[in-house]
Write a protein that binds this DNA or RNA. Structure first.
Length: 559
RNA sequence: AGGGCUAUCGCCAAACGGUAAGGCACUGGACUCUGACUCCAGCAUUUCAAGGUUCGAAUCCUUGUAGCCCUGCCA
């Protein structure tokens, strides 16, 4: 069954709560169409959690024949960089979310936001406040006590208008004055206690440069951005639930037709994995990882470099579902998705990580023959390849035991196994060095048992991988494991992380089939559980292959 | 005068008063030129707890409990 079929099956079974809201809105004529958006602030790289939001918003737009907008929420020049704009767009493109010609910047709406603020002032719903940041905090009250009103709360409309214009014209220092919404200082919701909606910041903005020295706050800007773009369902994460009354207030006071509605869902966390922009940023800045695309991270760039496909991430996100319950998804689910996708499209090659020489004593010296191997038994369209076979080959050290444990059915003295794509061989002996370490394994082969010969007279329990000694390609391999936080994937109180010690292993060497013609470039590989490798590439989409022997080494056979 | 949100299997997650879907993980077994894949079987008499309403409750009511978020001129 294909991934698509599985997904379709799921769709039949249930709809998530956001889909239910949308369908009800469409039925009741609240909206004639639906429009969603993904609105990141360009202050870092995207990670797996953002993928959920992107794919959710894009998927919803597709499902209900609506539109999906890309929008940078760049209302705070102190944190944003153009560098991040580019990386974010590249990641979203890679994920396959298509914003068509609708790429927007909140900063392009600054004029409209400025005018909206004036509207509020004229309606007596906003005022310029001279209190300092500290004073505002003090006046705001606490979680259990109401706030008290600012002495500047009742300035006249005319005075507010003048003062706000002065703010815009740069007549005040940063922090000297702010514009506040006039709502309710006694509200149990702290966000409604006359929130600041405009602040002064003399700073060059990545997009608008020095045009403005006042910038709108998120709570004021976001509903306006959504309304301007005719967004219907403004989907965000749980921590904004408390902001929804303010969102609705802005949209109502500004009298937008068919106002957007905010819907919140739970963020995606991966169990024991460092998620969260803030934490990833710290790892990058502290040099604990090589960069934003370090394969041990779960940024989109890292997952791509590590070999995850857009399809696998899409499948993962859909499998996780959408709800309002805080949860942490098992990393095994992500691994399942990449296995599911790659097993159809990755060629299955052989490789030996820790080699031991196997000499087939009854095979003619100097003879080389080619055996034919299917590239992917589950996908015949991938064709076949020829592998040179000879008297001496490498096998995996772990595939030979002098004293086999119970139920071990690979090579040991007297036992016969299949060399994948080649012949049956029977182990006849072995050599060791002075320390007892096995250096060479001896065997004999049975010419009748060649792959493709149709030989069925007897069977073997084990099939092992091999590479020719002469023509194998030697490469350095890095086996990456997750950067795991033994606690919760979050920082400790003192700012440190509880990282595992073995977040990366480096293998000295790896012997690969000659099929890897571009092997000189292949100095780095990544390991995905159950034997999926990909070529580590910063510049292009990674090539994948499946090294099947790893499957048994890493996963199935537990001694 | 605090407010908001959430609790269903080890992990996600359906169920919308009619008798606990599905996926991941795990455990058996079959198959196998990859100990993989695939296949088949198993995996919540019970939904945070305790009461109540009802012929019938995960769903409604009451009272608790636990977790997450909120006191930026961040988003």
């Amino acid at each position: 069954m294909t991934m698509e079929n599985k997904m379709e099956e799921k769709d039949i079974v249930s709809k998530n709560f956001i889909e239910q809201i949308i369908e009800k809105d469409l039925e009741n004529g609240v909206y004639q169409h639906i429009q969603t958006r993904f609105p990141p602030e360009p202050n870092g790289y995207l990670h797996i959690g953002h993928a959920k939001s992107i794919l959710l918003n894009y998927g919803l737009a597709q499902k209900y024949h609506g539109k999906f907008n890309m929008r940078f929420d760049d209302t705070n020049p102190t944190k944003e960089k153009t560098e991040f704009v580019e990386s974010i767009l590249a990641d979203i493109r890679w994920l396959g979310a298509d914003w068509e010609d609708r790429l927007f910047f909140a900063s392009n709406y600054f004029q409209q936001m400025y005018e909206a603020a004036i509207t509020l002032i004229q309606k007596g719903k906003a005022y310029v406040c001279d209190l300092s940041a500290e004073e505002i905090r003090a006046y705001r009250g606490s979680l259990t006590e109401p706030g008290k009103e600012s002495p500047y709360r009742n300035r006249s409309v005319e005075e507010n208008l003048k003062l706000f214009e002065n703010m815009k014209n740069g007549e005040y220092e940063d922090g000297e004055k702010v514009l506040r919404a006039k709502i309710d200082m006694a509200s149990p919701n702290i966000n409604m206690r006359d929130p600041v909606i405009y602040r002064v910041a003399h700073m060059t903005h990545h997009n608008t440069k020095d045009t403005w020295c006042i910038y709108p706050m998120y709570d004021f800007a976001h509903p306006i951005e959504d309304a301007i773009e005719h967004i219907t369902h403004s989907i965000c994460t749980l921590e904004f639930e408390d902001h929804r009354p303010l969102y609705d207030w802005v949209v109502k006071e500004l009298e937008y037709k068919e106002p957007p509605k905010q819907i919140e869902f739970a963020k995606l966390y991966l169990t024991n994995v460092v998620t969260g922009k803030r934490y990833i940023k710290k790892l990058v800045e502290d040099g604990i990882v090589d960069g934003w695309d370090d394969p041990r991270l779960v940024t989109i760039a890292a997952l791509r470099r590590r070999g995850f496909t857009p399809e696998s991430i899409k499948m993962f996100v859909e499998l996780c579902g959408v709800s309002k319950a805080n949860s942490s998804v098992d990393y095994a689910m992500l691994e399942y998705c990449i296995r599911e996708d790659l097993k159809q499209k990755a060629p299955r090659y052989m490789a030996v990580l820790d080699p031991i020489k196997l000499v087939i004593d009854n095979y003619p010296e100097g003879k080389v023959e080619y055996v034919e191997a299917v590239n992917n038994p589950e996908n015949e369209a991938m064709g076949t390849r020829q592998i040179p076979f000879g008297r001496e080959i490498y096998i995996e050290r772990d595939d030979f035991r002098i004293e086999p444990p119970k139920k071990y059915f690979r090579l040991f003295p007297g036992n016969e196994v299949r060399l994948m794509h080649a012949y049956f061989v029977t182990c006849t002996g072995y050599e060791t060095d002075s320390e007892g370490k096995v250096t060479v394994v001896h065997a004999t082969y049975d010419p009748k048992t060649k792959c493709g010969s149709g030989f069925t007279e007897r069977k073997v329990k084990g099939t092992i991988h091999w590479v020719p000694t002469e023509t194998a390609i030697k490469a350095e391999v890095r086996l990456y494991e997750n950067l795991v936080d033994e606690e919760k994937g979050k920082l400790n109180e003192d700012g440190t992380l509880n990282l595992n010690e073995h977040s990366m292993q480096i293998m000295e060497s790896c012997y690969l089939e000659p099929a890897f013609s571009g092997a000189k470039a292949l100095d780095r590989f990544q390991f995905v559980r159950n034997g999926f490798f990909c070529i580590d590439s910063k510049d292009s989409a990674p090539d994948h292959m499946v090294l099947n022997r790893i499957v048994s080494l890493k996963s199935s056979f537990k001694l």
